[in-house]
Nucleic acid binder design. Structure first.
Lengths: 348, 348
DNA sequence: TTGAAAGCGTTACCAT
DNA sequence: ATGGTAACGCTTTCAA
């Protein structure tokens, strides 16, 4: 025997297909008694609905958008690539996904972009956690659009879900590796490069890092953040003076992007391999730097996962069906020289 | 306008639905000229097939099996859980998944089990890489069944695909972490506990571990493997005499299962936190051991990924459609105290 | 409150 | 070599 269908239910309950459908979708216009009869049949037969067939018949189309910052860092390009790939697939599954670019670090531009997105079923958003952004998100939500924060969280009130890693834990992981790699009982300074302290993910990573260093490696001192604006040029300009001032440098923690600048400085000063360097997001540059020993560890998140998770949540919340929380937890990946995958860090 | 359908193709090409279908599925019985006309229409309209509708109409049922060793270790239970979960989902997608238990380390039992699986569309198999197993696999394949090796590889001739991590790289990762965690320039011995040297994954991990220690940390000496048979009791029995003989022990590398025995011995001897311990597979026990500091790092593979990947490959190969290699690469996960996820290590 | 019948996009059988 | 038509499991419109 194969799986029971709506026809089977209709037959055993002695009603028509239409009535079965009404009960199945909790639509009104059915007597309580009839509902009960159908429910019984459903239970007895162990019926489970064929989602594909349902969607086929329903012809549902989801209107979704991903809002991403510009200009693109290597990491953001990877995110964009993942979204584009998913958009192609999602088209098959009745979802239209638009990508909207917005200047980074510009809350007003984000607000404008969100305004234009009125009427969408769902929006995934990577933006600074500022009042303007939160207001715009609230307005969108009031219109019935589902909003998911991507990679960098927005405060609870402002979004329906967060798709990304726990950035405090990511910072703690970096701190633990830094302490252990520098060596037991070693003393010295650790330089920290961040993109912007407007970016909530950066703030959180810094906090986690500091916490672990303080509690577990008190002889290591984390210096104040250099703000590199996620830009290689800026990092290359700000880092050397810092290095000149710090005689006991044991490591560098790069929280955000602009790592090309960092790597260039390290090589120029012949520091590559002589101090412990930890950075975020497995870009091609950092992959190469792991291989040649310039960087010791990369803390990462699988952009494919993040984006797919955001899409799943967007669809689920748009339909009002519950999400499986455990399934949407994004792992904090640790990459070292030896556990790099042959090519892209992608999977499914 | 919505997406073009077979009807649109039929209309613009001036043929019937049946002919369109023949072309779409590369079935014979269509004049080259007609094929060309249809192809053109397909291209012009930018047609992409609706998989759900196709599957609905096709009513294909896949008969699949996962062959797993008994008795179950914690890791194997996780694998089984993942398969069961997937089986529930897969039922929705027209796949029947059976789980077949086979005594571990018994190649003949595996061969018998495979014999009984004749007629299946696909089999995922976790078994020792021995001649009997390889022969049985070849017989299955001759009957048209797709065979995927799971977690532990079978030599190339014997299977269609391997779903699992690169175990040499996993061993190298363990070696790198061991060397760096023990500390720069430190000398001493590392004990190695394996399950069985019949298990190909264990052999490969050992090799990778040794290679890195030799090349990058020559002052660390890896001792000959203790064979714990993946059993806590056995490990607890064999480990103490070894510890007594080694005065300069700096670390322990546990390649397989039976880690409850290892942890017990470490605590009894008050070694917990005093030597570097690295093990495989994020079981509840090892998760707890990371938290309390008994174990320093766990190299792992996401069983959910492994199992889903095996299923995808099984279906694809059964249908003769190509797989996307990059998508089926399983990551080597590194878990430390700080990057543990709240609950199960599952995701999607 | 209920039912009949026509779709959704694809495939498959039976004619021609 | 090609076409007509009835499925597949579900939803939806219209009528009763």
């Amino acid at each position: 025997m194969s799986r029971p269908t709506v026809h089977d239910i209709a037959r055993t309950a002695g009603v028509s297909l239409a009535t079965v459908d009404r009960v199945l979708n909790a639509r009104p216009g059915v007597r309580a008694k009839t509902v009960a009869r159908v429910q019984t049949a459903i239970r007895d037969l162990g019926y489970v609905r064929d989602i594909s067939a349902a969607n086929l018949a329903r012809q549902r189309q989801y209107r979704l958008a991903f809002v991403l910052p510009e200009p693109a860092t290597a990491f953001l390009s990877a995110v964009r690539g993942a979204v584009e790939g998913l958009a192609a697939l999602a088209a098959t599954e009745r979802a239209d996904i638009a990508i909207v670019d917005v200047p980074a670090f510009d809350p007003h531009a984000v607000a404008r972009a969100l305004h234009d997105l009125e009427g969408a079923d769902g929006v995934a958003l990577m933006a600074p956690d500022t009042p303007q952004v939160r207001d715009a998100v609230r307005r969108l939500k009031a219109r019935g659009t589902v909003v998911v924060a991507l990679v960098s969280d927005l405060s609870d009130a402002g979004r329906d879900h967060f798709a990304g890693i726990n950035n405090i834990a990511a910072g703690r992981t970096a701190g633990l590796l830094m302490g252990r790699f520098v060596g037991p009982g070693q003393a010295g300074s650790i330089a920290v490069i961040a993109g912007s302290m407007l970016a909530r993910d950066h703030v959180e990573r810094r906090k986690g890092f500091d916490d672990v260093l303080q509690s577990d490696f008190p002889r290591l001192r984390a210096l104040p953040s250099v703000e590199g604006r996620d830009d290689a040029q800026t990092v290359a300009r700000l880092l050397p003076p810092l290095l000149d001032r710090v005689p006991d440098l044991r490591g560098i923690y790069s929280i955000g992007a602009g790592n090309r600048g960092l790597v260039a400085v390290l090589k120029e000063r012949r520091l590559a391999g002589r101090i412990t360097v930890i950075a975020h997001e497995l870009t091609p540059l950092l992959r190469g730097s792991l291989v040649d020993g310039t960087v010791d560890a990369v803390i990462s998140q699988d952009v494919g996962h993040v984006v797919r998770s955001a899409l799943r949540v967007l669809k689920a919340k748009a339909d009002g069906v519950p999400i499986i929380a455990a399934q949407e937890r994004i792992r904090i990946d640790v990459f070292l020289r030896e556990n790099l995958l042959p090519s892209g860090g992608e999977e499914a």
